[in-house]
Each structure stands twice: as C-alpha cells, then as structure tokens.
Amino acid sequence: MSVWNRLRRSDHEKVRQLLSPYLDGEVSQQEKATVEQHLRACRACQDELEGLRWTIGLLAQTSAEPLPRSFVLRKTDVEPARKAPRLQWAYPLLRGATAVAALLLIVTLAVDWGAGRGARPAGAPVQTRSIQNLQEEKALPQESAPQAAPLATGVANAEAQETPPSAADAQASSPPPLKTAPTAAATPTRANQGRPVPTGVAGRQAVPPGSPPSPTPSGSNRHVWGLIEAVLGALLLLLLGATWWTARHR
C-alpha cells in the first residue's frame, strides 16, 4: 500500500468517527472543514452519512408512547412507612433475661449431673430403697402403717429421703438391723414389686446398707432449687412473650 493510500485510509477512518457529531454540529471548524473536504471525494462516507441521517430521522419519527397510568404521587406514597413500635428499651432487659436463663439452666444441669455422678460410682448398680426400707431405717412412727401403702413413686421416695433425720432417727438407724439386702432394688420388695425402679433423683440418694444416711438437701436448699425453677419458668414465659410480640409486630 502506498503512502498516499495509507494517508487516505487513516483520513477516512478519522472522518467516519466524526460523521455523527458532524450531523449534530458538535465538531470544531477545522474538523468540519476536514469532513466536508473528505466527503467530496469519498462515496463510502457519503453513504454512511446518508445512512446516519436516515436513522436519526426514523428515531425522531417514533411517536411518544401513551402513558399507561398517571405517575402523580399520593400522600401514602411519600409518607415514610410507619414502622412497627419497637421496644428499644426492652432489648437490654430481654438480653439480660436470656443470659440469666441460660446461666441458671447450665447451673441446674451441672448440679444435677454432678450430684448424680457423685452419689453412685460409675458402673455400680442403681440402688434404691423402697419406702418400706426407709421406714424401717428411720424408724418412723408410720412403721405400723400398712406395708402396701402406695408411696413407692420416685418423687415420693426422694421426698421421704430428703426429710432431715431427727436424733431419734439417727439412733435408730445407727445399728443396721435392716432386713434390706444391698440389692434392694434388684430384689423388689412388696412395695415396689412390679413397678419401675426409680432412678435419677431418688436413685442418687441410694444408701449403702450399714452406712449412716448420706447428707440430704436441707429445707433451705429445697427452697433455693424451688426458687431457681420459678425464676427459670418466669424467664421462659417472658422470653416466649417477647418472641410472640416481636413476631406479631414485625
């Protein structure tokens, strides 16, 4: 390609880029002169310019689209969306309640689990005392009560055990005149015959034969545990209520 042709070609490309702004009158005087001079000699650029002019003419003839609706704003459009009332002040309270509830739950579970492990060596058979044995051990006045009294439930068992032994009880229980075998639970007595062997709270209170009664929770301890349970229940109710309220007002 000759130098002259190369120059003409680069001129042609430059002018092609200027055709669109040339039609809009967005070129400098010098650019305008260059374009017009080139157009006189270049048929391709004349066609391009004609095509561009035709395209712009067609675009100008596209009529306006009728509005599908009015876009006038209503008051409800511009008013800030009313937010659901939020109890900002309640969040720290609820957070604290959650923390306390979690802590109490952990403490309760830990104490419960620890007491269960401490009362019974690992692998040892679960030993329980029937109500009959208890009565015998403690030489309670109810000794003369019918042996088949319906008191063999675990909780009742535990409660019976939790009763602090009196001095007379201690005396009565110090010698082991018990008829109970070490496997009291394994050999069911008349009282617990045919019933499930209570474990857990009652089970961990198992007393080996011949040993003095293990220390049992005092009345104040019972009150503490009762209080913890009440607080846990109240916190649970509070958190459930807060969850319900939040879900409803979201």
Binding site: P21, L52, W54, T55
Partner: peptide
C-alpha cells in the same frame, strides 16, 4: 452516540 447510531443504522 457515534457507535450506537452506526450499529442501529
């Protein structure tokens, strides 16, 4: 604009 018009044409 130049490129868009040229493509459209």
């Amino acid at each position: 604009l130049s490129r868009g018009r040229a493509k459209l044409r």
